[in-house]
């Protein structure tokens, strides 16, 4: 069963008066529970690909379907609601809110989902304990290491129990030990049945995926199993 589907997706945008082809008629189906790494040189369209799958960037042409819903047939408010229910983002730079503690950062998606303060507190604490930050609940991002910040981001991403996880270079700013720890978490959440798509430059990280999609100059040039 397909969780994600791209049909003839093209994305063009203007940059300093020139048209840039970020994606060029990309078609691909991704099954539920798959773990896909997206690789390719800088500027090949990897991040564009991921943001379009996340409903954050509309294609110039083509159709993107997630869990049977045509994402860009929804209006922006409906798309935000759909994202809240189904998609979790993980960023290279963590994107934690700097003035909130670890616990408060994890509470944000729970607040957006309309949970009560008590339920927010309970679930956020459970998630931070799960990622090994029981002792860092009330620390602000500036008081945490890079690896700890990415684990807070991981807990925040899991808060609304997303079916699809979109990770953009999640280990790009981390040391090898922390990278391993984050990849283990991604393996773990994939084993729980979530579909994981990870943009990466790191060959070791891409090997952890079940499947590799390679992009070059906006075109899909490889779509193979990782082991192959």
């Amino acid at each position: 069963m397909n969780m994600l589907s791209l049909q003839q997706v093209t994305k063009q945008y203007a940059h300093r008066g020139k048209t840039v082809q970020a994606l060029d008629e990309v078609s691909v189906d991704i099954s539920k529970g798959d773990f896909v790494s997206i690789v390719g040189p800088s500027g090949s369209g990897k991040s564009t690909f991921l943001l379009m799958l996340g409903g954050m960037l509309s294609p110039t042409s083509g159709k993107i379907t997630l869990a049977g819903e045509s994402l860009y047939d929804l209006n922006p408010e409906e798309r935000a609601f759909f994202r809240r229910k189904n998609i979790g983002f993980l960023f290279q730079t963590f994107n934690l809110v700097p003035y909130l503690t670890a616990l408060e950062n994890v509470k944000i998606p729970l607040f957006l989902a309309g949970l009560s303060s008590t339920d927010q507190e309970k679930k956020a604490t459970e998630l931070l304990i799960r990622v090994g930050l029981a002792e860092r609940l009330n620390h602000k991002p500036s008081e945490l290491s890079g690896g700890q910040q990415q684990r807070v981001a991981l807990a925040r991403m899991l808060a609304n129990d997303p079916a699809v996880v979109l990770a953009d270079e999640p280990t790009g700013n981390l040391d090898p030990d922390t990278t391993e720890s984050i990849l283990n978490f991604l393996d773990e959440i994939n084993r729980e049945g979530r579909t994981v798509l990870m943009v990466t430059h790191d060959p070791r990280a891409s090997k952890r995926a079940k499947r590799v999609l390679r992009l070059a100059e906006g075109k899909l040039v490889q779509n193979t199993n990782s082991i192959a």
């Binding site: 954050m56 935000a80 994202r83 809240r84 983002f89 994107n95 957006l112």
Partner: peptide, 12 residues
């Protein structure tokens, strides 16, 4: 921060 909130499903 606004972009992150939107990525998490915050509407306009």
């Amino acid at each position: 921060e606004i972009g992150t909130l939107m990525a998490m499903g915050a509407g306009s």
